[in-house]
Each structure stands twice: as structure tokens, then as C-alpha cells.
Design a protein around this nucleic acid. Structure first.
Length: 617
DNA sequence: TTAGGGTTAG
């Protein structure tokens, strides 16, 4: 059309831009904008909907300033922003946790005379719930009601999700009952949210009961419901049951989707079963699902866990060239990998590379970088990142503050830790039990036991929650100082509060008695705990955890070695088809390959996609 | 053809 200088109609033009914008590939959004400019040149008169699609594209790329600038540009074409325009930007800002910017935009929306509708309110509710600010979410709901807009199933579902995220599963279920009373019927999303929430807090029984309950009430489980169950089995390391569940999904007539496969791939990688992970990736492709950013990120994660950072970095670069969308998770994964490897320079270089690509880090990625810097005793640099976070419009979390406080404590800068703690309070964040434990640990390791005891007593007298770690920290330090009586008082106090004692408590006491040369007391203490049976149970648990067979014995089989080597060499010279042939042959022979061989095969599956320059032509 | 909730990766 462009070549023939034919004017497309508006529908053709909008459809094409919409397709490009929504097709998740590296250059598709840029192409969408190009189609827009070409169409204008060919004489098409755009409408608000055209701009709304372009604005969606900007939002998907995280380019919010450009999205907002389109609102002004619209006027030149006689178009005016509507609810869709504002809701699109508001929704994506909220999704990214940029609530301050969302609030400003809402103001602008009102000034331009566009009335917020139910979607607008729901978007705000979801934004606040997502960031755990449930009080503010309730205020939005009150405002909704005042504006004669009644909360609907979406509003309830988002609030239920917020409650579940905060571990308040009982409140979430109460709200479900409340919505039923208000004649808003819970739907499959309500149940999925609750089921997921139950599994997240470890109440799997309740989760399974809810699955039965939804069926009884005539709410049909969908792929998401099944995926939540599959995820749970994977998390528990029960991979056989996970794959059995997938078989059941297929039998029940629901098709496993991309998420199902990505969940399984992740599960197998975490279980160290790279052969099944590879098989799933291959199957995913065969079933017509494209390997996407998530699949890529899962593999990146696995490579980082295996400490194969060069490979991970090379995969990131080649995937980019092949048109995969890299996101902040891709970068965050590798950044964390480098930090764990002690390589702050490479981690920070990647951070800059991410920024250059205009990929905007979320609070989680900031937390990753901040934690990485703190672990490498670069807490001052972590504070700089923290300030950068604030400037970017993101809201920090308790974790963010705790990480930095911990960093200062680890460096022995307890005073600075307390300064940052004060900053946390000034900014209306509530120090939690973790903050308390970090500060206590900081004081104790700097020999300020009296100050630690003061803090401990004040904390308890304020009625704030403590846990086993709090007690163990104090008990260990008291023992080290030889104040065994005070330590034992705390042991019985922690027993009264059902917080222990556990193996850490026993180890602290035994260790201190031994190093004080009180061998008889130590032995007596040991026999006492063995009598009670606690210690045995604990140590048995530890022993079980330590049993891991990472490499299967079959790997030492000469056939396996030869095949693995050949596959790696073929993949390195990009002869993936030949590598697959060897893989299939060895599979038939029942020869297991080495972990590395499976990893290169997985990389091969990712890299086999045509490179983006070829795809555009 | 355009906006909001639940599942996957850091």
C-alpha cells in the first residue's frame, strides 16, 4: 500500500498498529510507530483510538513520558483523550508500582474534564493492593461508592489478592463471604486468588478444599487453577505429581498453556533435572508455543545458579540479537548472579546497560542491586541506589530499608544503621521483627550487649512481635558473655511463647559452654536435650536436607560422556539439528547426558529462533 | 482495533 501510495482506511491502520504493538518482539513497537507516521503521510486522519493504541505501545515499553506526550500531540489532530487514554497509562504506571506518577496523572485527567469511571477506580485499587497499601485501596473504594460507582467482582478480587499477598488469608476468605452477601458472585479469579494465597502461606489443605468448593458451586477450574497447583507441586519438589497434574489437565480437556510449560521448566531446573527441563522446552516448541522472555529468564536463572555466568551473559546478548524481548527480570537475574559471584563491577555494568536500553527497573530489581551491594560491603553505594530509586518515583519496601540497615550492621556501622532506621520511621514505614533482629544482631556483634538488651526489652514492652531468631540472638550473646543464667531465663521465656528452643538455641548454649571449658556442663546439657528428643529430631532433619545427589551416576558412563561431548561441540558450532539427532539417538538408547549437555541443548532451543534482522526482512 | 483482577522468571 505504501509503495502504491494508496491510502489505507483507519480500521486497517489501527488493526496493523495494534497487532504490532501487542506482538511481543524487540522492534515491533517501533514498527507500529512507523506505520502510524506512514499512514499520516498517506492522508489517514487518526482518531482517539489510534492514539490510544500507540499510547499502549509506549506503556508496554515502559516509556511513560512518551505516552503522556501523545496526549498533547492528539490535539494537533483534533482528537481528545478519553477514559481509555488515561486508564491505559494509569494501569501500566500502577503495574510498575509508580503510584506517585499515577496520582499526578489522575489530577491531570480531572483537569482535562475526563471523569474517572469504574475501570479507573479499579486500576487504582489494584495499584495500591499490589504495593500492599490496603488502607489507601480502601479509601479509593470509599471514593468509588461516593461517586455512585459500586465495587464489582474486579474490585473485590483485587482487594482479596492484596490481603492474600499480605498473608491475611482469613480476612481474604471473609471478604469472599462478604461479596457473596452483597450479591457479587465470586468467579474463577476469586477462587484462583484464594487458592494461590492458601498455597503461598503453606495451607495446602485449605487450597485443595477450595478447589473442591469451587466445583461444588459451579465455578469451573481453568488453566490458571491447574497452573497454581502445578506451581505448588514444583515448589514442593514433587515433580512427578506436577507432571501427573499436567496429564490430568490434558485429560480434562483443558490445554496446558505457556505458563504450564514455563512452570514445569522452572521446576525441573530447580530440581536439577535438566534433562526433563530440556524435554519440556522442546515439547513447548513442538506444541506451537513460542519460547518467550519467561522461558529465557528461567534458563538465565538456572545458568546463574550453576555459576555459569559467562554462558548466561552470552545467552542474554544472543537472545537480544535474535529479537527476544529482554526485560528487567532478565537483567535482574544476571545482576544478582554477578553479585553472588562477588563481581560488583560486572553487575553494575549490566545495570547501566539495562538503563541504556531504557528498561526500567522495578522495586524488586532495585532490591536485588541494593542487597548485592550490601553483601559486598558497599552499603554506601547501596544508599546511592536507594536515592536513585526514590528519584525514579518508585516506593521502597520494608525489605529495602531492612537490607540497608543490615548492610551497615554487617560493616560494623551500627550508628549509621540506626540513622537509616530513623529514616525508615520518618517515611512512615513500620520497622518489623526482621528490622529488630538485624539491629539486635548489629549491637551484639559490636559488643553492645546492654544496648541490645535495652532494645529487646523496649520492643517487647511495646507489644511488638518477636520470633525465635530474636531470642536466639540474645541467648547466643548472653552465653558468649558467660551470662548463662540470663540466657536460660530467656530460653524458658521463649518456650512459654512457643517460639522454641530449636537447634540454633542448643548450638549457642553448647558452643559457649564448650569454649568456656565447661565440658561437664556441656555433656550434661547435651544428654538432657537428647532425652527430651528435640535435638535428635532437629539434627535428623538437617541430615536429610544435606543429602543431595546433584550428578547422576550415569554421567560417568563412557557412552554418556561421548554423547555429551559431541552434543556440546555440535551446539558450539551451531549445528543444532545434528545435536538434536545425537540427543534423540542417546535418548532411545537410554543414555543419560551430562548437565552441561542439556544446558547447551536448552540454549540451542532459544538460539534457534531466526535472528531479528532476518525476521524483519 | 484501544483500558482493569488470578498462574511462570529476578
Amino acid at each position: 500500500m505504501k509503495r502504491l501510495k494508496k491510502k489505507p482506511n483507519l480500521l486497517t491502520c489501527n488493526t496493523l498498529i495494534n497487532g504490532l504493538v501487542k506482538f511481543p518482539s524487540l522492534h515491533s513497537i517501533r514498527l507500529g510507530k512507523q506505520v502510524f507516521h506512514d499512514s499520516i503521510r498517506l492522508g489517514v486522519i487518526p482518531q482517539t483510538s489510534t492514539f490510544n493504541i500507540l499510547i499502549l505501545g509506549c506503556c508496554l515499553e515502559g516509556k511513560f513520558n512518551e505516552a503522556v506526550s501523545f496526549i498533547e500531540k492528539m490535539k494537533d489532530f483534533g482528537c481528545f483523550p478519553d477514559n481509555v487514554t488515561y486508564n491505559t497509562i494509569l494501569g501500566h504506571l500502577c503495574k510498575k508500582g509508580r503510584l506517585n506518577e499515577a496520582r499526578d496523572l489522575l489530577q491531570d485527567m480531572r483537569e482535562k474534564g475526563v471523569t474517572p469511571n469504574r475501570n479507573t477506580f479499579n486500576i487504582l485499587v489494584s495499584g495500591y493492593c499490589r504495593t500492599g497499601r490496603l488502607n489507601e485501596a480502601s479509601k479509593v473504594i470509599e471514593l468509588m461508592v461516593k461517586n455512585d460507582v459500586l465495587p464489582d467482582v474486579w474490585t473485590y478480587n483485587m482487594f482479596i489478592d492484596g490481603l492474600c499477598d499480605g498473608g491475611r488469608i482469613d480476612d481474604a476468605i471473609k471478604l469472599r463471604d462478604e461479596m457473596e452477601n452483597s450479591k457479587v458472585l465470586p468467579d474463577v479469579v476469586t477462587y484462583n486468588t484464594l487458592i494461590n494465597g492458601c498455597f503461598a502461606v503453606g495451607s495446602s489443605d485449605r487450597g485443595f478444599r477450595l478447589v473442591e468448593e469451587m466445583k461444588e458451586k459451579g465455578v469451573v477450574p481453568n488453566a490458571v487453577t491447574h497452573n497454581i497447583l502445578v506451581k505448588w507441586y514444583c515448589k514442593e519438589g514433587r515433580m512427578d505429581e506436577a507432571s501427573e497434574r499436567v496429564r490430568m489437565i490434558e485429560e480434562s480437556g483443558v490445554s496446558p498453556d505457556k505458563v504450564t510449560y514455563n512452570t514445569l521448566i522452572n521446576g525441573y531446573c530447580k530440581a536439577g533435572n535438566f534433562s526433563e527441563a530440556f524435554r519440556m522446552m522442546d515439547l513447548m516448541g513442538r506444541k506451537g508455543f513460542k519460547l518467550d522472555t519467561i522461558t529465557l529468564n528461567t534458563l538465565l536463572h538456572a545458568l546463574c545458579e550453576e555459576r555459569k555466568l559467562n554462558k548466561a551473559s552470552e545467552l542474554l546478548t544472543s537472545a537480544y540479537k535474535r529479537g527476544y524481548l529482554l526485560d528487567e527480570v532478565s537483567y535482574g537475574t544476571l545482576i544478582m548472579g554477578y553479585f553472588k559471584d562477588g563481581n560488583a563491577d560486572k553487575a553494575l555494568n549490566l545495570w547501566n546497560e539495562m538503563k541504556e536500553k531504557e528498561i526500567i527497573p522495578s522495586i524488586i530489581t532495585y532490591n536485588t542491586a541494593i542487597a548485592g551491594l550490601c553483601q559486598l560491603a558497599k552499603t554506601e553505594q547501596a544508599v546511592e541506589k536507594f536515592n536513585e530509586l526514590l528519584e525514579s518515583g518508585l516506593v521502597p519496601e520494608e525489605t529495602t530499608y531492612n537490607t540497608i540497615i543490615h548492610g551497615f550492621c554487617r560493616e560494623g556501622k551500627v550508628e549509621k544503621a540506626f540513622e537509616f532506621h530513623n529514616k525508615m520511621v520518618e517515611n512512615s514505614f513500620k520497622p518489623d521483627v526482621i528490622t529488630c533482629n538485624i539491629l539486635l544482631c548489629g549491637l551484639c556483634s559490636e559488643g553492645m550487649l546492654e544496648k541490645a538488651l535495652n532494645l529487646f526489652n523496649t520492643w517487647i514492652s511495646k507489644g511488638k512481635a518477636v520470633d525465635g531468631v530474636t531470642y536466639n540472638t540474645m541467648i547466643a550473646t548472653l552465653c558468649k558473655e558467660g551470662r548463662f543464667e540470663a540466657a536460660f531465663n530467656l530460653v524458658s521465656e521463649m518456650k512459654d511463647n512457643n517460639l522454641g528452643p530449636d537447634q540454633y538455641t542448643y548450638n549457642a548454649i553448647l558452643g559457649a559452654l564448650t569454649s568456656a571449658g565447661r565440658m561437664n556442663d556441656a555433656e550434661e546439657f547435651l544428654s538432657k536435650i537428647v532425652e527430651v528428643g528435640n535435638f535428635q529430631g532437629q539434627s535428623l532433619q538437617l541430615a536429610e536436607k544435606n543429602v543431595q545427589s546433584s550428578e547422576s551416576p550415569k554421567e560417568f558412563d563412557p557412552d554418556s560422556n561421548a554423547c555429551s561431548k559431541e552434543i556440546i561441540e555440535l551446539c558450539n558450532s551451531r549445528r543444532y539439528k545434528d545435536a538434536m539427532r545425537i540427543f534423540e539417538e542417546s535418548n532411545q538408547k537410554g543414555v543419560a547426558l551430562s548437565k552441561s549437555a542439556y544446558i547447551v541443548l536448552m540454549e540451542g532451543l532459544i538460539k534457534r529462533r531466526k535472528s531479528i534482522s532476518k525476521a524483519i526482512k
